[in-house]
């Protein structure tokens, strides 16, 4: 999966990304050497427990890491440019235009005191010199595209007049206004109930397929990734511990952490078997143990794990960061 050189088809290529927070308590290495590639029109699922660095990865790509955080190393190749080295104005012109982002909590993403039309029209006009009427037209079409009934009326509404699911659709419509090449979706359905989650997933998938938009779908819900993503990257304590094609990783996980994650998904558990929970908690990023960061929670840990494991390609397209991977289990 990791390609040397620039793949022509890749929309995004992140290499050795490092994003650190310089806090009073010390340097928090929220993202510490993350690399992945997203091909055109493909969906990458970025999974991991809370605090593993998924959102910080997303914000690094779109250039919205706020102090005390900073991208301190690596490169983010997008359309032949390294986003980590663009000026603020160059980055602004890409944001919401070629790269869009959707946030987790739809109740908080829209400005409560501005009408929906204002918030959509300003997005159109931030990147294209069109008059208000044209911009409004575009906004209306986008609302229609994400399945919002009577978009003309809805444009005149304020966010609090929408339900959570409808607000998330509005946010998605805003993200789609400029038909971006890449959408970073940070747990956009987590706050919604299951039915609405399903509807939105189906629509996003359809849209991505028809427009050729690539997606990074951040979630800690493996069942969402299973149905949606082409590739998957599993993050733990700021690093990718396993990646590969989604079916392969989910059917035959290599890393003990991935195995644990899959074991804790109720629907994937075999009947009768008790639900396994990964023991322990994510270690504080300020006090990571030497060697493998998963060591304190891992059943397989031994002296070898006192060293820092590298990400090895262990099967076709599948890599894991582990000295004792689950290689014995043969994929079905």
């Amino acid at each position: 999966m990791f390609q040397q050189g620039f793949a022509v088809t890749a929309t995004l290529e992140v290499r050795d990304l490092q994003t650190h927070f310089f806090t009073r308590a010390g340097v928090v290495k929220a993202v510490d050497g993350v690399s992945f590639t997203v091909e055109r029109g493909k969906v990458l699922g970025l999974v991991g427990e809370s605090g593993s660095g998924k959102s910080v990865t997303g914000f690094s790509i779109i250039g919205l890491v706020d102090a005390p955080g900073r991208v301190v190393g690596g490169s983010i190749w997008f359309q032949g440019k390294d986003l980590a080295r663009l000026s603020e104005e160059e980055m602004r012109s890409l944001r919401g235009n070629r790269i869009a982002m959707i946030f987790q909590d739809p109740m908080m993403t829209l400005n409560p005191v501005l009408r929906v039309d204002t918030q959509m029209i300003e997005t159109v006009q931030a990147h294209e010199q069109v008059d208000r009427e044209t911009a409004r037209q575009r906004a209306r079409d986008a609302l229609g595209m994400v399945g919002i009934p009577s978009p003309d009326e809805r444009l005149m509404s304020y966010p609090h007049q929408f339900s959570g699911g409808m607000r998330q659709r509005v946010a998605i419509a805003i993200a789609l206004l400029h038909r971006p090449d890449l959408i970073v979706a940070d747990e956009p359905t987590t706050a919604l109930d299951v039915t609405i989650q399903g509807q939105i997933l189906a629509e996003v998938q359809k849209l991505a397929a028809t427009t050729g938009t690539s997606l990074i779908w951040i979630t800690h819900d493996l069942s969402v990734v299973a149905g949606l993503a082409d590739d998957i990257a599993v993050m733990y304590a700021g690093r990718i511990v396993e990646d590969g094609p989604v079916s392969q990783v989910l059917d035959a996980p290599l890393h003990p952490y991935t195995v644990g994650l899959i074991g804790s998904v109720p629907s994937r558990n075999k009947r009768g078997e008790p639900l396994r929970q990964i023991p322990g908690m994510t270690p504080s990023l300020l006090k990571l143990p030497a060697g493998c960061a998963f060591r304190s929670r891992c059943e397989r840990a031994d002296e070898a794990c006192l060293e820092h494991p590298a990400l090895f390609g262990l099967r076709e397209g599948q890599r894991a960061r582990c000295f004792h991977p689950h290689l014995e289990e043969v994929p079905a």
């Binding site: 944001r95 919401g96 869009a100 400005n111 005191v113 501005l114 997005t123």
Partner: peptide, 28 residues
């Protein structure tokens, strides 16, 4: 607030974010 970050993620200029999105909220 998330909506300020979202406003920036939409590619709005700094001034637009400050004087429309932030300002209108603090005016209340």
């Amino acid at each position: 607030m998330d909506y300020v970050k979202f406003a920036r993620a939409k590619g709005l200029s700094r001034n637009r974010v400050t004087y429309v999105h932030v300002f209108k909220n603090i005016l209340i």
